[in-house]
């Protein structure tokens, strides 16, 4: 009898620890292989044949199709330069330059990973339509209110996620190295 109780307890512990830890790990962001530069994080391994099992499991659960290393690299930002989480209630300026690439796109998502709904029907910018300063750098205004220049409208009270996809870039073969990415500065919050 005592043996049965002990066995039952052991199996319960095994089930709780095993399944619980798997769920907790998979609900968080991808664990391994993250490369962070400033506010931006990329997972170069997720687009290669040697993705780790956690990344594979996360991709299978989300249904996401990662960019292959021969296609490009996606950087995600969820916080501004000071580390505060991006929020749809705030306005931001994305300032600077992007790493060498043939093409890039910047897209705004909500916290659940859906495209940002907005009346202007603009969910992002790409590198050829953006207005630049004379030195080639750019400023993108992420804001619920109309802004001059490159305005990326957002309409949410909740979290915000920005994805910068860089296509045909040496970063995927030569490593991210000290790539310089634009910084995200908070302007104001309502």
């Amino acid at each position: 009898m005592r043996l049965l109780i002990d066995l039952a307890i052991a199996i319960l512990i095994a089930a709780v620890v095993g399944f619980g830890s798997a769920v907790i790990v998979l609900d968080r962001d991808r664990l391994f292989g993250a490369v962070t530069r400033g506010e931006w994080t990329a997972w170069p391994d997720s687009g290669s044949a040697n993705a780790d099992p956690y990344t594979e499991a996360m991709l299978a659960r989300s249904g996401e199709v990662p960019l292959g290393s021969g296609e490009g690299l996606a950087f995600t930002a969820e916080a501004d330069r000071n580390g505060a989480r991006l929020s749809g209630r705030c306005s931001y300026r994305i300032v600077g330059q992007t790493p060498a690439a043939r093409l890039w796109t910047l897209t705004a998502y909500d916290g659940d990973g859906h495209l940002m709904e907005n009346p202007a029907n603009r969910t992002g910018f790409h590198s050829r339509e953006i207005l630049r300063r004379e030195d080639g750098s750019f400023v993108i205004q992420v804001s619920p209110h109309v802004e001059p220049g490159n305005w990326l409208p957002v309409e949410t009270d909740r979290a915000l996620r920005l994805v910068l996809r860089i296509y045909d870039t040496p970063l995927t073969s030569g490593g991210v190295g000290d790539a310089i990415l634009p910084s995200i500065e908070r302007v104001s919050c309502s």
Partner: peptide, 23 residues
């Protein structure tokens, strides 16, 4: 139980891609 839990964890992670229905 903890050791068995660790094994379950590894098996679950490895099997998720084969059984996921929204992949």
């Amino acid at each position: 139980g903890l050791i068995l839990g660790g094994i379950i964890h590894i098996v679950v992670i490895l099997l998720v891609p084969d059984f996921a229905d929204r992949d």
